[in-house]
């Protein structure tokens, strides 16, 4: 089984969804390479997943509110330590969500701040995101109530 990535790159506003379809909420600066990796790297089949990209924290907060109910996976790509700290400060709306965190650097202080968000996976912005795609794939497989499946990464991205 594999999955369908609906509207990759779709931005707010979100329409309120009454179903419990899985949603990917991605916070990243405009033009970040992860967007292309997600667009190109995920093959579409079967299961429905929606993805929503948010360029700033305010938009992410609004998106979280609108995407309520059902499974949500957050991919957070703060551009620097300051933005990561801002995310850590707003912990409450993020705490119950599954978070994949892409760190801007690997300094001790950055890592400590990152763990305050209790992410399910941490990676760094220097890589090709193949590890992130692999983890995301498994998370989606686990969340699908039937059988685990996989997202198929674009060979170009591992």
């Amino acid at each position: 089984m594999a999955y369908q990535l609906l509207n990759p790159g779709k931005r707010i506003p979100l329409e309120r969804e009454s179903n419990s379809r899985m949603k990917l909420l991605i916070y990243q600066p405009d033009g970040h390479p992860l967007e292309n990796v997600l667009r190109q790297g995920l093959t579409t089949k079967g299961h429905e997943i929606e993805s929503f990209f948010f360029p700033d924290i305010a938009a992410l907060t609004a998106g979280l509110r609108q995407a309520s109910g059902g499974d949500i996976i957050l991919i957070l790509v703060p551009p620097d330590k300051k933005e990561l700290s801002r995310l850590a400060m707003m912990r409450a709306p993020l705490l119950d969500k599954k978070i994949i965190l892409i760190l801007p650097d690997n300094r001790e202080e950055t890592i400590s701040t990152a763990h305050r968000l209790h992410p399910r996976y941490i990676s760094d912005a220097d890589g090709d995101f193949s590890d992130t795609i692999a983890v995301l794939s498994k998370m989606i497989g686990n969340a699908g109530s039937h059988a685990p499946g996989e997202l198929i990464a674009d060979p170009a991205h591992g």
Partner: peptide
């Protein structure tokens, strides 16, 4: 000190040990 979460269910086998 830190509270570090490892989500064993989300890690593909190939990433477990390096993670």
């Amino acid at each position: 000190r830190r509270f570090v979460v490892v989500d064993c269910a989300s890690l593909p086998d190939s990433l477990v040990e390096s993670t």
